[in-house]
Design a protein around this nucleic acid. Structure first.
Lengths: 135, 135
DNA sequence: GTCTTTGCAAAACGTTTGCACGTGG
DNA sequence: CCACGTGCAAACGTTTTGCAAAGAC
């Protein structure tokens, strides 16, 4: 890895995640920037998101069966995904301590950390279900 | 949902996951079956895996940034993914109880459950690192 | 005979990559 | 100047889907 340059595109990506203040997907960032800066490439957005994560400016929230999300909050916290619409939100909960010490036998694996992903139904989708719009 | 039929293909998929006794991907199941039954379609494997999960015969282990896995073990347990090779293994740990009760404020979300995915380096990859084959 | 399931291929989806061109330091 | 970043399009790996033919009940 050699030295990193500052570019307009990188600033745009960082500022967009900052401005949107939620768990945005790479594509949402791309679409948002394209409004003001139509020539930006999708690859550039993906590359810069990864760089910003590597530099510790953003956190990547890896989501199975759906696009990954990026957010600003740097302290460790957990997420919940709406099983209906896929929206990701922060969970208001203290960090669980000592989880790795609860492992009985590591079977030789070197444990580094963990992610917890809660499943739930967000308020908007609860309303949709009640109104018979879905299910 | 209407009534389900028993087919050779569905049996093959169930038996393959059973025989392989690890966290297999849909593609691994497909390749394995193709040896003995070359005309099976990939779509059929995917469809049957989903059906078997729905019927409670298999569990789907959703993995971010990689293919989903399927396993047989039906009691609740957690998984660890090797950050190097992506292999999924079971974690030898008691189930964490009362996690949902630790949430301070649900913000209206209806919480249904959660998954924990540990990160680690499996023994094989530790050896590769020590031998200088990677990193 | 009817309705589900299959096999096949194409499409969908999120993401990565190759490469010629542009730009920051 | 020239290494690094960009824009564009094509490729990628996984999964889903449309549809005619085959098969279960």
């Amino acid at each position: 890895m050699t030295s990193r340059r500052n570019t307009i595109q990188k600033d745009l990506v960082r500022n967009t995640v900052y401005e949107m203040r939620r768990h945005v997907t790479a594509n949402e960032v791309y679409e948002f920037i394209k409004e003001a800066y139509p020539t930006i490439g999708k690859g550039t957005v993906y590359r810069n998101l990864d760089i910003l994560v590597e530099e510790g400016n953003l956190r990547k929230v890896e989501v199975p069966d759906g696009p990954n999300r990026f957010d600003l909050t740097l302290k460790n916290h957990y997420h919940v995904r709406c099983v209906n619409c896929g929206e990701i939100s922060d969970v208001d909960m203290d960090e669980i301590l000592g989880l790795l010490e609860k492992i009985h036998d590591t079977h030789g694996t070197d444990f580094l950390g963990y992610d917890i992903l809660f499943k739930g139904i967000c308020p908007k989708c609860q309303k949709k279900i009640k109104d018979g719009q879905i299910y």
